[in-house]
Design a binder for these strands. Structure first.
Lengths: 192, 192, 192, 192
DNA sequence: TATGAATGAGTTTTCATTCAT
DNA sequence: GATGAATGAAAACTCATTCAT
């Protein structure tokens, strides 16, 4: 196993364990055992537990960002592109339960101090350009209501994320028809 | 300080500390010190840490439920009542940062196993009846889109909660006009 | 055992173990076992290992200071008082091997950052007044050579300390006659 | 870099780090980084950490021994030769702070078990003959007081060493005049 | 020979909980 | 009931040393 593979194995083990047991009920010794690395090796890759958890967040967030734009294409209509992203988000959270549980815990813990991206964009937010493209017309004029970006986010992708999260708790999955209804309602909600 | 006051002091201390330091970075010894009670006394009121945290959740959730319906009246129009609840939710999360941070952590932690209320309603959900009243007309026919309750929740109160949460991180507060715009969009989004 | 006695037991255990095994070959677990306290209890009394070691130094230094002036009296001649202190120092280092070994290690480790006492005197140096009394005549004029205090110290008490230290390594003890010869030579060395 | 140069680089790095951080707060990994050698390479030159530290002591002690007799000549008077050695010792400890700090730590640590030289002399003590030469007259009769060698040492070279050590802690350096006064006092102290 | 990632035993430290006073 | 010192199991982390490349 290469150096990079070992690092991935540690992150994967941590992801699985944290999803199952919680951020703070996951001792490093268990991550070591589950990943097949020794305790010392984890500290070779990460300075401490916190560093490992931040790295895991970055790793998961990157996966999510790739999933969010899968299938996107300039040929899609604005609403088509929106629906795609909305459904991608929903399905990611629904099918990647470990990732989803981890993100919930991490982003609501004191570990998390989100940076508002400016100037040079941080990798986790690398698909923001695509999101912005949906929000302006060909002339660069906004087509959405004049609301802060976080409000627009919560009325759209946020809704997908949170509904998917509810569905983890034993509720029946939503059929595609229902999802499209919700996605459409979200779209309408932010459009001028 | 009476028995009940001491219990409240413990819960208040725990609330403040957990909001600041996180659910799992808050030792019982610190709660003892901050509350002015001894470690032993805490174990008089609660069987263990988990019990204390569940009690705190109940306590905070009850506060929230009262805040949610403040000012409500049968004379308000449907949308008027909706706006009121939406704004109540937003303002609660915005002005009660400790409570808000605690709820975020608790409800995304392994402590939390939400029960879908049936038959006898659990106290935390005691204002659900009011919510349901908004969703049916005088003849008992639904006036909202035919969507699961959790979807309706996330498109409305959930949005209020999550936007308020973003605003904790240093973003400027939203003006009342903007909030009403968002509340209205949420209302439209779920109505038939 | 009272709270204070437990603290003393911990310090005594640490002293013995550090003298035997060295400052850094003495795990807290061993101090716990030797003292009859649990590991946790040590951390009740001291914030961490370093804090415990500083406390031990203070404790030992205080013992030494008391030993240094034992038998002293205003009626003794200058040289008589000097001889007394010199011999007290020698015998302390010679008979208190654990204390002596600990001081050697501590005061030559990076733990040690001696403060030059000014204005308010630190407890460890509480017998400095007695030392100064030996150095001036009734008119307050110095009777020693005009040398810095640390030089005077090293030519006198320091010599006692270091010779006693050599004698720990298996060399035969010095007879009282020899000690007085050395003490006298030291006295002569610093006198005008 | 040759094999021997690499060994020197390792010892120099260890010397600097131990002086700064202490004998037991200097991990081999840091010595590796500071010296530019890999961890494995260090174990090529030394069997283990203890071996490296003993080698460093030997290295430093040899440097000191050369410094001690620098400028010595059979033509110097007894006291002239004594003054030279005394000042050499003082200046070595004063100008070689890393070496000085290392020796303090090493010689007060459990690593150190000094051998009293008999028969064949160990290299570190190779200038003892020069010291002895100062102590007898042309007829081989002792000219010093009849005291054990360690006492004579502590009243002379030991004083130089310890005063220099005090001067490391921020005290102003001693002028040459003062040093000669002390050296002379030391000389007088041991002479018959 | 040189490298440096990996090891894992050993160390410090934490903290929920108990119980004698 | 209230106290808070004591407990000790469990956690995070360190570091001398090895060994495959």
């Amino acid at each position: 196993m290469t150096y990079v593979e070992k690092r991935e194995a540690i992150l994967q083990a941590a992801l699985k364990l944290i999803a199952e047991r919680g951020l703070h009920n996951t001792p490093m010794s268990l991550v070591a055992k589950e990943s097949g690395a020794s305790a010392g090796t984890i500290y070779h890759h990460f300075t401490d537990k916190e560093d490992m958890i931040h790295a895991l967040h970055h790793y998961v967030k990157t996966t999510f960002n790739h999933a969010l734009v899968r299938g996107n294409s300039p040929e899609l209509s604005r609403e088509g592109a929106f629906q795609l992203m909305w459904l991608n988000a929903y399905h990611f959270y629904h099918t990647h339960q470990d990732e989803s549980r981890f993100l919930d815990q991490y982003e609501n813990s004191p570990y998390y101090h989100p940076q508002i991206p400016e100037g040079d964009m941080i990798e986790e937010e690398e698909n923001l350009p695509e999101l912005f493209r949906l929000m302006v017309d060909d002339a660069g004029q906004p087509v959405t209501k004049d609301l802060p970006i976080d409000a627009l986010y919560e009325m759209t992708i946020g809704v997908a994320a949170h509904i998917a999260k509810h569905r983890r708790s034993g509720l029946p999955p939503l059929d595609e028809q229902t999802l499209q209804t919700i996605a459409h309602a979200c779209y309408q909600a932010i459009m001028k």
